[in-house]
Write a protein that binds this DNA or RNA. Sequence first.
DNA 1: GAATTTTTTGCAATCGATTTCAAAATTTTT
DNA 2: AAAAATTTTGAAATCGATTGCAAAAAATTC
Lengths: 328, 328
Amino acid sequence: MGLTIYDIAKEAGVSASTVSRVINSRPGIKKSTREKVEKILKESNFSVSEAARGLVNQTSRMIGILVSDIRNQHHIEGAYMIEQHFMKLGYCSLILNAGDTDESKADYIRILSSRRVNAVILIGSAFQNSAVEEAIKDYIPNTPVIFQNGVFSLPNVSSVLSDDVAGTYEAAAYLYNNGHRHIAYVNGNDTPSNRKKVQGYEKAAEEFGFEPLIKVSEDSAEGSAAVTETLVNEYPEIDAIIYAVDLLGVGASRKLLDLGKRIPQDIAIIGTDNSPFSMLSNPRLSTIDTKLQDLSSACSEILEKAIENPTYREHLVITPSLVLRETT
Amino acid sequence: MGLTIYDIAKEAGVSASTVSRVINSRPGIKKSTREKVEKILKESNFSVSEAARGLVNQTSRMIGILVSDIRNQHHIEGAYMIEQHFMKLGYCSLILNAGDTDESKADYIRILSSRRVNAVILIGSAFQNSAVEEAIKDYIPNTPVIFQNGVFSLPNVSSVLSDDVAGTYEAAAYLYNNGHRHIAYVNGNDTPSNRKKVQGYEKAAEEFGFEPLIKVSEDSAEGSAAVTETLVNEYPEIDAIIYAVDLLGVGASRKLLDLGKRIPQDIAIIGTDNSPFSMLSNPRLSTIDTKLQDLSSACSEILEKAIENPTYREHLVITPSLVLRETT
DNA sequence: GAATTTTTTGCAATCGATTTCAAAATTTTT
DNA sequence: AAAAATTTTGAAATCGATTGCAAAAAATTC
C-alpha cells in the first residue's frame, strides 16, 4: 500500500526519474529498462498519486458538475453525458448536488475551486443568482464554466439553454388554434426557468386574448393532482391545462380521469420536458420537448473546446418543439 | 489566480506556516495576526489547494461512487444519499458511471485508487465479477468498500443487499395463493441480481408445482411490450406475469390493455423495485419493494463507521416486501 | 531590570510525483 | 583505439500545502 515511484525505482535499480518516464511513456528510455520497470510496476500493483501528479502539472484532470437536483432525471442525464464524454478524455467527474440556498450553492463553487477542477458545469436554472455569479467571478474567474439552462455575463461562462418562453408560448398557441379558449397554467417550483415559462404563457394569453389563469403546485404528482382538482372544480369551463413539468401533467391526468373527465375531449393536457416517463404514462402525455438531450451534448462539445482553448465561449439557445401524443 | 499561502504570507508579512495555521484554525496564533491574515485571505479570494493538502495529509477527502448505470433511478438515488451524507462531513464525491465490460469496471477501481479516495461504494450487482474483485484486492486492499447489491469475500468489503430470491419467491407465492396457476416471468438484462430473482421464481414454481415459463426482454418499456405480446399470444393460458424491473411491468401493462386484456382480472402483473413511476403508472403497478431507500441509508452509515474505524465491516441483507396496487 | 516562563512565530523537511540540465553510457565515425 | 555524436540516466529543484522543532517575542516572576 502507498507505494511511491521511489519504491519502484529502488526495486528496479533505477532512479525515480526513469520510473516517471516509463509511467508517462516518455521517449529516450532504453527498451530493456523500460520493460524491467514496467514489469515491476505491474507486479507491485502500483498506481500513481494523481494528487502529486496534479500538483506538479497544475491540473486536477477533474470536471466539476454542479447539479441543482441530481435525482431529477434531466439533470442526471446531462451529468451522465458529460461524465462519459470526459472520462474518455481521462477526466474524472466531481458530481455535487447543490444545496438549497443561493449562498450554499456559491459554497460549492468554492469547493470546486479548492479542488482545482479543469472546468465546471452548472446544471439547472437554480444557479441563476448573484451569489453564484460572485463566487465564479471571485474564485474561478479563469476556469471554463458552462451553464446549462441559465446565463451569466462573465467572460468565462458559456451557456446552453432552451427557450422556455417560446416553448410554453407555442404550446398555448397550439391549444388556442385548436379551439381551446380556457387554457390554464400550473407552475412548479419558483425557478428562473419556470418564471420564463409563465412569461410565455402570459404572452400567448395576451396575444390571443384569453384570460390567463395560473396556479402553483409543489413538484410531485400528488401535489399536482390536488391543485388540478381544485382548479377544475373552481373553473369548470377550463378545457386545457399546461404544466411546467411532465410529472405534474402525469399526476393531473390521472386525477382528471378519476374525476370522470375525458382526455383530451374534455380537457387537453400538455406537460414540459419530454421526460422518459411522459411516453410511458397512460394516456401518453403530450409535452413541450425542451431538447435536453441536445442541450447536454452541446454542453460536452462546448466544454471540450473551452478546455483546449481557454478563451472559447459560446451561447446557444435551443428552441423547444411540441410533441403531440394522446392528451391533446 | 493560483495564489499560494506564500503569496498570502508575503502580503501579511508573516511566514507560510502562520498562514497555514490560520487557515486550519490551529491554536497558538496571536489574535491580531490571525485577524490580519484572515482579512487578506478573504480579500484575495484565496482557496487552498486540496491536492497539495491531500499530499501531506495522505488523504483526498473524496469518496468514490461507482455506479453501473447512473441513469437508473435507483442507482442515482443511492449515489445521492451518499453524496449528501459525506458532503456534510467535508468529502467530495467522485461519481463514475462504470463501463460495459467486467474489465472496464475493474479499470475504474484503478482510477479510484490513483485518486486515493477514502472509501468506495459500488452500486449495482453488475460489479459482481472476478475482474472487479481482483482489482479491489490488488489496488485498494485497505480502502473501505461497500457493495450495494452484491458481495465479495474480501476483508475490506462490506455489503448491503436485498434478498432477491426471497422477493420474487414471495411475489410468485402471493399470486399462486390467490388462484393464479399460470405464472410467467419476464427477466431483464443478465445481471447477478436478476439471476437471483429467477431463482426465486423457479423455487416457487417447484414448490407450488406450476410450470415455470421465463422470457427475457431488453430493458425498455417497448422491449417488454413486444415480449409480453408474444408471450400471451403463444401461451393464452397465462394469468399472471412477474417482471424483473418495474419499467418492464409498466411497458407490459400498457400493451396488455391495448390487446384487450383486463388487468388484473385476466392477467395480474407484478414489477420489481417499487420505482417512483410504478406508482404513477396507470393502472398503478403492484411491485416487489426491494427497499432501496433503506439500502442506501444503511450504506451511508456503514461507510461512515468504516472510515472512522478501518476494520469495521458489516453484511446486511434486507428482505423485500410486496406492495399491492392495482395490477393484482 | 534581570531572569524565567509562556506565547508566537519561522525554518526546513516532507508528501509523491515531474522535469531540466548535466553526467554517464553507448554508439558511430574517424 | 581515440574522438565525436548520440542515447540513456540521475541529481536536484519544483508544485503548494503541513508540521516538528528551535528561536524570537512577550508576559511573568523575582
